[in-house]
Amino acid sequence: MVATVPTGIDGLDSVLNGGLVENATVLVSGNPGTGKSLFGIQYLYNGVIDHDEHGIYISFEENAEDIRQAAESIGFDRWGDLVDDGSIKVYDKQHMLREGDFSSALDTLLEDFANASYDRLVLDSLTMFSLFFEDEKEKRTYLLKFSDILKQNGLTSLLINEQGAVFPETEIGLENFLTDGNIYFIQTPTDSGVNRYVWVAKMRKQDIDTDIFPMEIDDGGIKVYERAGGFSMMGRDGPDAGF
C-alpha cells in the first residue's frame, strides 16, 4: 500500500484514493479565482487540526494578513492562532521578495528546515517564483533542486501555478512533467455565477479517478462532489472564492 497524506477535503480524498502520495510534490494549476490558494490554506489547516502535522505556507503574492483573512473568510478561525504558536509557518511576499534572489530565499528555508520539523508545504505561486530566474533552463534547474529538497525533508507539497488557458490540456508547461502529481481547478461562467470543477490528471504511485468532478467553495472551505448530485449546488459564489 502507498502511504498517503489526506487533504481533509470532502470528496477529494476519495478521488485521490486516500490522499496525496506521501512525500510527493504536486502541481496545482488553474485560472485566477478558481480556489487554488484556498486549497493550499485548507490543506495546511486540516493537517494541523486533524493530524497534528505542521506546515509551511510560502507566498510570493500575498502578505500574512491577507492570508489570515482568506482563511477566516471560509471558517478557518484558528488560522491566526496556529501561525502564532508555530504550527503553521508563513513566509509572505514581504519576506520572500526581500531576499532578492532565490538562492538567498532557499538558504532561509533550509535553515528553518534544519531547526524545525514540518510535514506539509504550500508554495504560492510558481508564476512569481519564475521571476527569480533569467531563463527556462535556470528555472528548471532550481525547480528540480527545490523539489529534491522538499522530498529530503519529508514534506508533502503543493506548488500552485497560475494558468491562462481555461482548459488545462491546452497549456502544458515543463513543471507539469517535473512534479509527482497534477491537480487542475477549473471554472466556467454561467448566467448565475460560475461552475467549479477539479480534475486530478496525474498522481504517481497512486490509482486515481481521472474524471472531472464538480466542487464548490463555501463556509468550511472546498467541497468536491463525486456524483452529479452535487452539481445543482454549483453556480453560487462562496466567501472570498477569488483568493
Score class of each variant (00 low, 15 high):
residue 166 V to G: 10
residue 239 P to T: 10
residue 13 D to H: 06
residue 62 E to V: 08
residue 105 A to Y: 08
residue 44 L to V: 08
residue 17 N to F: 00
residue 242 G to N: 11
residue 98 R to N: 13
residue 99 E to R: 10
residue 172 I to W: 06
residue 101 D to T: 09
residue 97 L to H: 04
residue 102 F to D: 04
residue 162 E to N: 12
residue 43 Y to G: 07
residue 171 E to H: 12
residue 41 I to W: 00
residue 79 W to G: 04
residue 239 P to W: 14
residue 31 N to D: 01
residue 145 K to G: 14
residue 58 I to V: 14
residue 196 R to S: 07
residue 213 F to R: 00
residue 196 R to D: 01
residue 112 D to M: 11
residue 26 V to E: 07
residue 196 R to W: 00
residue 63 N to K: 05
residue 32 P to W: 03
residue 173 G to H: 13
residue 200 V to Y: 00
residue 197 Y to R: 01
residue 122 V to L: 04
residue 204 R to F: 11
residue 91 Y to V: 14
residue 39 F to A: 05
residue 141 T to L: 13
residue 117 S to C: 05
residue 112 D to G: 07
residue 241 A to K: 03
residue 144 L to R: 15
residue 177 F to C: 05
residue 81 D to T: 07
residue 212 I to F: 03
residue 181 G to F: 12
residue 110 L to S: 08
residue 65 E to L: 12
residue 230 G to H: 09
residue 130 S to R: 15
residue 105 A to D: 04
residue 148 D to S: 15
residue 86 G to V: 07
residue 148 D to L: 12
residue 118 Y to R: 02
residue 137 K to E: 04
residue 4 T to E: 06
residue 192 S to H: 14
residue 194 V to A: 08
residue 181 G to Q: 07
residue 103 S to P: 05
residue 158 L to P: 01
residue 152 Q to P: 09
residue 75 G to E: 00
residue 13 D to Y: 10
residue 129 F to A: 00
residue 131 L to T: 10
residue 224 V to F: 13
residue 201 A to G: 03
residue 227 R to W: 10
residue 182 N to Q: 15
residue 32 P to E: 03
residue 218 D to M: 00
residue 39 F to L: 09
residue 229 G to A: 10
residue 160 I to V: 05
residue 111 E to V: 03
residue 8 G to T: 11
residue 237 D to F: 13
residue 15 V to G: 00
residue 105 A to L: 05
residue 182 N to D: 13
residue 69 Q to V: 11
residue 56 I to W: 01
residue 134 E to R: 14
residue 101 D to E: 14
residue 66 D to N: 15
residue 130 S to E: 14
residue 142 Y to H: 09
residue 13 D to T: 06
residue 141 T to R: 14
residue 170 T to V: 15
residue 80 G to L: 01
residue 5 V to K: 03
residue 50 D to Y: 07
residue 90 V to F: 07
residue 98 R to W: 14
residue 175 E to G: 00
residue 92 D to K: 07
residue 50 D to N: 15
residue 98 R to Y: 12
residue 90 V to W: 05
residue 67 I to N: 02
residue 113 F to M: 03
residue 163 Q to I: 06
residue 231 F to R: 07
residue 119 D to M: 02
residue 157 S to L: 08
residue 37 S to W: 08
residue 72 E to D: 09
residue 96 M to W: 01
residue 55 G to E: 03
residue 146 F to K: 05
residue 143 L to R: 15
residue 184 Y to P: 04
residue 79 W to C: 04
residue 90 V to H: 02
residue 212 I to N: 04
residue 156 T to P: 09
residue 30 G to M: 10
residue 79 W to T: 04
residue 30 G to Q: 00
residue 132 F to Y: 14
residue 34 T to H: 01
